[in-house]
Computed example of a mutant assay.
Amino acid sequence: MGGCEAVMERDLIASHWPQDLRSAFIEPPKPLDFVLPGLPVGCVGALVSPGGVGKSMLALQLAMQISGGPDWLELGNLGRGSVLYLPAEDPWPVLHHRLFTLGQYIDARQRVALERDLRLIPLQGANPNVLDSHWWKAIALWAEGVRLVVIDTLRRFHDADENAACAMTQVLGQLERLAMGLGCAVLFVHHTSKSAAFQEAGDLQQASRGSSVLVDNVRWQGYLATMTKREAQQLGVSEGLCHRYVRFGVSKSNYGPPLPERWLVRDESGVLRSVTLGDVRRERGKRVLL
């Protein structure tokens, strides 16, 4: 065995050692540190929806709230901290428009906090790849000290086959390594499958596009689903306006109760806000409006 390989082996063994079970049995654990409701530090989550529904704007608004911005979605106190937002799908002029629009809703104190704690690095056209060691190290460097890393969208951060379980396990493994190594949470934005979008089933766990690993291996999965015509009729929303309303909820939450589903309305500028339209519950797999 060469010297380099021997050092790597020693480092690997030193970093993975049996835990002290005696202390685990007798010492109360620290409370889980949740970055989003149900998504704790050290874990990877997904935000899934069809294209054009507003998931990138939602991801940006969540990033801004954690960095010191307003609570547009009425999620309550999420805990303050720095956020690294890596959009690789939209060009800077589009991002500039979104930021300028959202900036109209923040006060001077919030603006100072956001300018300090929100790290936004546009990567459109840069072909970032978490499977490439150079790219992974760059992202890890940018993410030092942050509470949340937002990957927008996952498809733009790897060159592997999205339907291959082995490849997606490696991709998620790199994101988990980032979350655990830096003590943050990682949230990636992802698309639903065509069949889920066609069947209006974007709020189900298996709506995520690609290998089932992308659902099975994440600890948290949120969704956005456009209001259907049937829902609009039952809620008294004009059919011509139903495209402005989306349901936001959590279809998978391993470490806490799911976030209560809520309706969001998208204004003319694309900003999402919480709105009360009625209570929604599930009965035998169907949505029933109360």
Rank of each mutant, 00 (worst) to 15 (best):
C4W: 00
E5N: 09
V7P: 00
D11S: 03
L12C: 06
A14D: 04
S15V: 04
H16Q: 14
R22S: 02
P28G: 05
P31Y: 06
L32D: 02
V35E: 01
P37K: 09
G38A: 06
V41C: 07
G42T: 10
P50G: 14
G52I: 13
L60S: 04
I66G: 02
P70A: 10
L75M: 14
S82L: 02
V83P: 00
L84C: 05
A88S: 04
E89V: 10
P91T: 11
P93G: 01
L99E: 06
T101N: 14
T101Q: 13
Y105I: 09
R116Y: 00
P122E: 03
A126H: 05
K137T: 11
G145H: 05
G145I: 07
V150F: 01
V150W: 01
D152Q: 10
R155E: 01
A160I: 10
A164H: 11
M168H: 03
V171H: 06
V171I: 14
L172Q: 11
G173K: 14
R177T: 13
R177W: 09
L182D: 02
A185I: 07
F188A: 03
V189S: 03
H190Y: 07
A196M: 08
A196D: 01
G202N: 11
L204E: 07
V213Q: 08
L214Q: 07
V215Q: 13
R219T: 10
R219Y: 00
R219I: 05
Q221C: 04
Y223A: 14
A232W: 08
A232D: 01
S238I: 10
C242A: 12
R247Q: 11
F248V: 05
S253N: 02
Y255I: 09
P257M: 07
P258S: 07
L259A: 04
L259W: 13
W263N: 10
D267F: 07
D279P: 00
R281H: 04
L290I: 10
L290H: 09
